[in-house]
């Protein structure tokens, strides 16, 4: 099983990331508009910004893919003039590392729903860590901070966990994921048996 990233893997990852970077860009104004409601309702939408990493990993299933996808999506959003500007690159980096860590922890062999959700949670943690410096969130009143953290985590689990997982499942049914997924060991074994 070849774990190294080929040009095909990279191109597919980046195409997925760029598609999502357009969604990220549209998501920005939506997020700001919703945030005017107050009480951190907008945080439920925050999870969308981790979805490129989880989806790309679930499709290609190789080391490094989640990280590259998140960075590329952030870079894309930056290039299309995303409203957070330069800070996007740093957030993309940290969120990408968050997702990648979880997948690495399961040695890139577990593609279940709970792993996807865990990746979303760790990406949330990464973004919260940056928000301590960027948004001074630790200076919020405690109940407000708790509300922010809970809302963001729930949103991340729903969007980058559940939604990403079921979207890739739907993609599996179209057969397109077989094009890019590394061939598993049993496929080679099956081939050898038929040769005999």
């Amino acid at each position: 099983m070849n774990k190294k990233l080929t040009l095909t893997d990279i191109l597919v990852t980046i195409v997925i990331a760029i598609v999502f970077s357009v969604i990220y860009k549209i998501w920005g104004p939506l997020y700001s508009a919703v945030s005017l409601i107050g009480l951190h309702v907008e945080q439920f939408l925050y999870g969308m910004w981790f979805i490129a990493a989880t989806i790309a990993f679930l499709i290609i299933r190789k080391p490094g893919v989640a990280f590259i996808a998140e960075i590329a999506a952030a870079q894309g959003e930056f290039l299309f003039g995303g409203q957070w500007g330069i800070s996007l690159l740093l957030y993309g980096l940290v969120q990408g590392i968050g997702c990648e860590l979880v997948f690495a922890l399961f040695r890139y062999k577990n593609y279940r729903l709970y792993v996807t959700c865990l990746a979303a949670i760790l990406a949330t943690l990464g973004s919260l860590w940056l928000d301590m410096y960027y948004g001074y969130i630790t200076d919020l009143v405690w109940w407000n901070l708790t509300l922010l953290i809970t809302n963001r985590t729930i949103g991340a689990i729903i969007l980058s966990g559940f939604f990403a997982f079921y979207l890739v499942k739907a993609l599996d049914k179209t057969g397109v994921t077989n094009l890019v997924r590394p061939v598993a060991k049993e496929h080679y074994e099956a081939l050898e048996e038929s040769e005999r």
């Binding site: 080929t6 040009l7 095909t8 990279i10 191109l11 597919v12 195409v15 997925i16 598609v19 989806i55 499709i59 979207l167 739907a170 993609l171 179209t174 397109v176 994921t177 094009l179 890019v180």
Partner: peptide, 15 residues
């Protein structure tokens, strides 16, 4: 689903 599927197919061919 259709947009992503089609994009992956296209990316694969281009790659």
């Amino acid at each position: 689903v259709p947009i992503l599927a089609q994009s992956i197919r296209r990316a694969h061919r281009i790659a």
